[in-house]
Write a protein that binds this DNA or RNA. Structure first.
Lengths: 100, 100
DNA sequence: CTATTATATAGATAATCTTCGATTTGTCAA
DNA sequence: TTGACAAATCGAAGATTATCTATATAATAG
């Protein structure tokens, strides 16, 4: 059991945070863009983004006044595999790498 | 974002619970057996087992006065894949099924 | 430089979670 | 049936977390 596997699980252990992750999954969005799509305040979104950032799950890019975030899918995929390795070692869970 | 993906993440979002999961990973253990191997009390272990049970992550078997638990690796592996599908849809995370 | 807009941080509150000691429930042996 | 042991539940204390409002910081336009 590693520290990072607890950190990863904690980062996913909240419905609002998972909704933010879904939004950031395949696109860059700035904070206001996230706020517009959810029913929580801007500081709440910033808080959750901070948690995701601490867990290393998002990439950040500043552009003028805006700060854009996106989910780091590689980190998510690898962390999922790591969890499976720890707690389902008799199964084999892998990231399929496109062979071309 | 499904309900179960939050439930699963919450179940893993505690270090003590992950330690219990490690213990139950490849063996059946009764509650006292878990208590002996950790530094927490019996009610605490029972509580965590209840959380894991609610999340459908453990199998339970009563044997006389003892109640034995083991981790359901299939559930863990599938839940990990489900998380990856939701939050890393552009990666492909799969459970490799032994081809014989 | 000042006003405006976007985001982060601070501080407070309420809810949730972890843990414990005490008690109850379940199971068996005598 | 009673006594002993295993596990679950209860109830409370303390810690952590989620959320909000208010405020501070950062960036830009004028």
């Amino acid at each position: 059991m590693t520290q990072s596997s607890v950190t990863f699980a904690k980062a996913l252990a909240d419905a609002t945070r998972q909704r933010i992750m879904s939004l950031l999954c395949c696109q860059w969005l700035n904070v206001s863009g996230i706020v517009d799509r959810l029913e929580v305040t801007q500081p709440t979104v910033s808080h959750h983004l901070g948690v995701l950032r601490s867990a290393g799950l998002v990439a950040v890019r500043r552009q003028g006044k805006h700060v854009f975030y996106t989910l780091n899918q590689d980190r998510v995929a690898n962390s999922c595999c790591q969890l499976a390795e720890e707690f389902a070692p008799e199964r084999e869970v892998v990231v399929v790498t496109a062979s071309e």
